Simulated assay, not measured.
Amino acid sequence: MKTAKEALAKSLKTLLQTRSFDEIAVKQIVLDSGVNRQTFYYHFQDKFDCLQYLFFNEARDLIPEQILLSEWKARYLSVFRYLDVNHNFCRHVEVSSGYSQLSDFVLDCINLIVQGMTRKVSVNAADSFGSGKDLSVLEYGLQGVIMNWFRDGLRENPTLLIDGAANFTEEQLEILLRDSQCVDKSDKVSGC
């Protein structure tokens, strides 16, 4: 059963298929969803909050909680595919005042990928993603590759971009993830 909050987010996504985020008013979202305005403001502060909720859920639907190191490129590629399949929706966000929400969505997906791999590397690592210096550089670099690809019109083959920009082995990834744990939890993680 779909909640009113989900219905509002779905309506925003539908409206974003044909117009810029800046052109959409809360009034249009509630009319499209069949939910009243008061309910919108019960769930969201404004349309930016609704967009953030939408992207938050899209990221969690796209990226599983646990990822094998051997699967990371496929999961990263799934973010490219999401932007390709949802091109109109994403483009209408990207050319608007909601741009940072799209960029945050991409980074959130990458963080979820790193979290998922970290969980597979060590049970103790669940809280460690993204805080190691090298790991942050990796995450922001991967985000930049996707955002540049999107801004440039999705012209290049994402698989070739991934192979060129992020060509490291599973062993190198595991070392990076374990080193991040050591930086974050030097007193709590054994073997660092």
Rank of each mutant, 00 (worst) to 15 (best):
F21S: 03
R19W: 03
D32Q: 15
E65L: 14
I63F: 09
V93P: 00
I67R: 03
Q38W: 05
H92I: 04
L15S: 04
S96K: 07
S131C: 08
A125Q: 06
E94R: 08
D49R: 09
V93A: 04
D104S: 14
D108H: 12
R37G: 05
D32F: 08
S96M: 11
F21L: 04
F40W: 10
Q66L: 06
Q101M: 06
N36W: 09
A126M: 07
I110H: 06
F105H: 05
A125P: 02
L107I: 08
N124M: 13
V95W: 04
I63N: 02
M117Q: 12
V79P: 02
G130Y: 07
A125D: 03
Q38P: 00
T18C: 01
E65V: 09
L77H: 11
V106K: 03
Y99G: 00
V121I: 13
L83H: 04
Q28M: 13
V93H: 03
Y99C: 00
L31F: 02
F48P: 02
F21P: 01
Q115A: 15
S122A: 12
A25M: 07
Y53E: 07
S78E: 12
A25Q: 12
V93Y: 06
A126C: 01
L83K: 01
R81W: 10
D32M: 14
N57K: 15
L62E: 02
Q45L: 15
I110L: 09
L51N: 10
I67Q: 07
W72Q: 11
F129G: 02
A25R: 13
S78K: 08
A125I: 00
I29D: 03
G116C: 07
